[in-house]
Amino acid sequence: MKLFTITQQDWNRFLQTISEFVSVVAVEDHAHPFKEKLYPPHDTLFFYRKDTPKEKASIQEKKTLYYGIKPCDAKTGKLLALNFLSDPHPDPYFKAMTENTIVISTACDHFDPYCFCDQIGDSPSALNGADGILYTITSGYHLLVNHTWLSQQLQQFGLTPTEVENEKSPFDKGNVAYREIEPLPIQVLREKGLSTILNTALWEKVTATCLACGVCTFLCPACYCFDIQDLSYGRVGKRERTYDSCMFTLYTSEASGHNPRPSIKERWRQRLLHKFTYYPMQYNEIGCTGCGRCSRECPSKIDIREVIRDAAQSCE
């Protein structure tokens, strides 16, 4: 990893320089998860013509550099890749999207009441799988880069880097947000989450006011579930995938009418355990970035931190 120091003016000039090779996009909207850029809410898998079985598909090739992403959001690429790029059938659309994307995050300088990246073991200055991270300093930025092409470009631009061993940079407590706070008991759920499965009282308590809408999942940087549907326009059409949510009835209901997750209790259990128990079992990572959107935007203001604590407490 290489560490550069760059003035605000030079940074702007640098972005201009590289815009010759990549499209440069500043991410200013933090209400929406960055995952929408790597994995759009709806995406065409292929087009078809009805009378022939011939099918074609294509993927956009344009390389894009995004900057200004929050570190929690930058983690989306890492977490989604665990699912999408897993063997034996890596997802070609996600693969192409991530290969065509350069992600530079900006170390975060404040917590709002819903943020909890620091309570799940991340930090507001973590690289989290991004290609680079900017730390704001008075004269501009420190820029930590983990991307060969990018650091070459920076050096060609005239900057000299210093080698950095790992991302635990000296900026952890500097110009970034920092607070003393008790971590969430995610380790308990990781190890003993399965023991909550039959705890009806817990899930009843958790879901008493849950409306079963899809806000939490649609805005979650780690949620990736999708639906596939065919859209016909006469003799031609396309097969498309769209975001889906484990909170919806239709998500698991079968043609026979049987639904293995008939009520909101089973669906909440699935959502929580998927993130904090199953994902670690599968990939040794929790499926959460601590961005807090699920709680911030919840119409019932159900706070996932409370649920984590309640569930962990009930673990045997």
Binding site: P41, L211, C213, G214, V215, F218, Y243, L250, P299
Partner: peptide, 27 residues
């Protein structure tokens, strides 16, 4: 709109057991 159906779910009048958008036969 992202079609999360938070509007429907938060509405006391939207109490249908199965909403028309949750039917896929027909879609």
């Amino acid at each position: 709109c992202i079609r999360c159906y938070a509007c429907r779910q938060s509405c006391p009048m939207c109490y249908c057991d199965v909403c028309f958008v949750d039917i896929n036969k027909p879609l």
